[in-house]
């Protein structure tokens, strides 16, 4: 597996159906974007998990730092009024 040292890491996102958003499913190694798509197809969609794949080189993903968790997310905790829970949904709406 020494080849993996030279192949960059890619993050894989899969949409299970048209219209649904792409969800992160995991990562893999590949030498280029074409190989990343093919590897993702073989590794993550063998059991009909998806109909669309996005791959992004991991180095292009910027993430929040766990140490910043409090200042980033704590303030939202006490603001229940931001949830639209005070509306009554019509019966026909089932994807909220």
């Amino acid at each position: 597996m020494s080849t993996n040292k030279d192949w960059p890491l890619w993050e894989v996102f899969i949409a299970s159906k048209r219209g649904l958003s792409h969800k992160h499913v995991g990562s893999l190694h590949a030498a280029d974007s074409e190989m990343a798509l093919e590897n993702a197809r073989d590794v993550y969609t063998r059991r009909k998990e998806g109909e669309s794949i996005w791959v992004v080189e991991s180095k292009y993903i910027f993430a929040t730092n766990p140490e910043d968790k409090d200042s980033f997310f704590e303030p939202a905790k006490t603001k229940v009024y931001r949830h639209p829970t005070f509306y009554e949904l019509p019966d026909d709406v089932n994807k909220m």
Partner: peptide, 12 residues
Amino acid sequence: GPALEQDIAITN
């Protein structure tokens, strides 16, 4: 296979 991903691709 030469790498895990290719191993899976070829057995597929």
